[in-house]
């Protein structure tokens, strides 16, 4: 892809440290030559990618492009067939090492909540703390996602929007440095989606790195600082959000943004 180098150049200049070709302090996560296949089908093809520290990175692309696979490999819950995942320039292929290097959490498109009360779901993720501070944090988080009134209800009886807000609160309970969102607002009503967006923006302002998969172009425009466009298992475009939305470089990006199906 002719423009990949260009994009990397565009992203680099401010931070680039020419003395160390291997370690890029601007990148919080880096993928090197990552391949992933399932049932003899190559789903991610030799991905090289650097994700910058801070801000919100949106991962976009058509269905089946490999967005969810990519974000799961970044998060460390899926192992690539070959290639390396680096956090802060350190190899982090074992999930144990990764969690030591970086506190991270993920909100899935379909939240899996424990068969417990709303409160107990949060307490489960706060269990490393003393009981008293855990309760305090639990109350604060429930307020944040506006679920305080449902604290004692069974989590699985909540509406989709409420469940996703609880999943976000649970993700925040571990005070992550990096927060992954995999189409977290895809099937939510606008009110719940906006609660989540507000919280995401606040987290970003507090220095949390956000990496989100989204199909919602308007949402990406509202939130993203930079965008990665995946197409058929390859990164076809990585750009600052303003560049990507105003001046997409590739045909795929143009088609995607204008809402057209891609046909070869």
């Amino acid at each position: 892809m002719h423009n990949k180098l260009q994009v990397a150049e565009a992203l680099k200049p401010k931070y680039s440290d020419s003395s160390s070709a291997l370690k890029d302090p601007a990148a919080i996560i880096e993928l090197r030559n990552v391949r992933y296949s399932s049932q003899a089908k190559l789903l991610l093809k030799n991905i090289d990618l650097k994700i910058s520290r801070g801000g919100i990175t949106a991962v976009m692309g058509y269905n089946g492009a490999g967005k969810s696979l990519l974000i799961k490999i970044l998060h460390g819950i899926l192992q690539a067939d070959t290639g390396d995942v680096l956090w802060d320039g350190e190899l982090a292929n074992s999930s144990q090492k990764q969690s030591e290097a970086q506190k991270q959490a993920m909100v899935f498109q379909k939240p899996t909540l424990l068969r417990r009360s709303v409160k107990a779901n949060l307490m489960f993720s706060l269990n490393k703390q003393t009981k008293l501070s855990a309760i305090e944090k639990c109350v604060a988080l429930l307020d944040l996602v506006r679920l305080a009134h449902l604290a004692d209800n069974p989590a699985r009886r909540l509406s989709g929007g409420e469940q996703q807000r609880l999943a976000l609160a649970r993700a925040l309970a571990s005070k992550p440095d990096v927060l992954f969102l995999d189409e977290a607002t895809a099937s939510l009503d606008p009110a719940s989606a906006s609660v989540i967006e507000d919280i995401v923006i606040k987290q970003k302002q507090q220095g949390v790195k956000i990496i989100m998969v989204t199909h919602d172009v308007a949402q990406a425009e509202r939130l993203a600082d930079d965008v990665i466009l995946l197409h058929r298992g390859e990164v076809v475009e990585q750009a600052l959000a303003s560049c990507f939305f105003n001046n997409p470089k590739t045909q795929v990006a143009k088609a995607y943004l204008s809402g057209q199906l891609w046909n070869d």
């Binding site: 998060h75 819950i77 999930s95 144990q96 969690s99 959490a105 993920m106 899935f108 899996t112 424990l114 993720s125 571990s174």
Partner: peptide
């Protein structure tokens, strides 16, 4: 199995 991905994410 239902909890697997979430628990993996929670390390």
């Amino acid at each position: 199995n239902e909890y697997a991905e979430q628990f993996a994410s929670m390390r």
